[in-house]
Amino acid sequence: MATTVPTRGAHTPPTGGSGAASNGHSKWRTRLWRFDDKASPYAYIAPFFLIFGAFGLYPLLYTGWIALHRVEMTSLNQSEWVGFDNFTRILQDSEFWTAVTNTFVIGVISTVPQLIVALGLAHLLNYKLRASTFWRTVILTPYATSVATAALVFALVFRADGGLLNWVLHFVGFGDTDWASGEWTSKIAISVIVIWRWTGYNALIYLAAMQAVPADLYEAASIDGATRWQQFRKVTIPSLRPTILFTIVISTIGSMQLFGEPLLLEGGTLGSVGGSEHQYETLSIYLFNYGWKLGHLGPAAAVAWAMLVLLLLIALINWIVGRLVRKSATA
């Protein structure tokens, strides 16, 4: 992979200007080329950094400034220094802590089953199949569905009266469940939407990683008399460890962002506060409610910073767990 990048300085200009007359001209050209080679890469990557700087990094820092001020939706140009009042305000709000817990709980019960099912699904797709592309496309269709559409369909499915799920469940002897009102059932409903949308996508990511596992590892394992299940556990899973970690990180970040699902599960005013008892209110809903419904942007910015702290905490936990797992694997 150590191919050197060609530089034009090494080549003579093909204009082939012979004689002294074109000498100055070619020197100028060489200088221009050298500048072209030096500057071009930066020019090509500049758009990304400009856009990210203007609409990503700058607002991120600006959030910190707003969090220390009083800014109202009705008068965006006026701000008043309030110190850490916004932070104490949200930290003393029990609704905030409910949202933190909900985000965490929904994150776990949507991510863990999702990734386990995706792993199994990828394993199945890794077999030699008839119409393999067809199966891959089918399991990916939920990915093409928007959050809004998915949330709205599942809202009907999970409806208390006349909902499809309750109708199916009554055949196995369950009474009507008011899914959206329950502490746990509402979180399960949200998680089902998330799981439905993302399992196929994650399965394809695992499948890509599985296909990169060298075949001789499996050959060696089967020569040693390993069963299929043992091969899956001792060869596939360890080889996939970096990919699994990657999907855990991505899903964790994703679950911090849950917004459309809780907003539209019941819709209307209930959606913007995450249910009558805030039973499925996530941090994004809490931020939206504070900033856009109540119009207090200062506390909303403080919530954003709290989310950043939580993300860093989760990253730390991920890192520690990753290390422990690796240690126990080598031990």
């Binding site: 609409f55 990503g56 962002q257």
Partner: peptide, 15 residues
């Protein structure tokens, strides 16, 4: 930058 959720910057972005 992939790990930064949009939630962190929507308030100033709106302003």
């Amino acid at each position: 930058t992939l790990t930064i959720p949009p939630q962190l910057s929507v308030v100033p972005l709106f302003m």
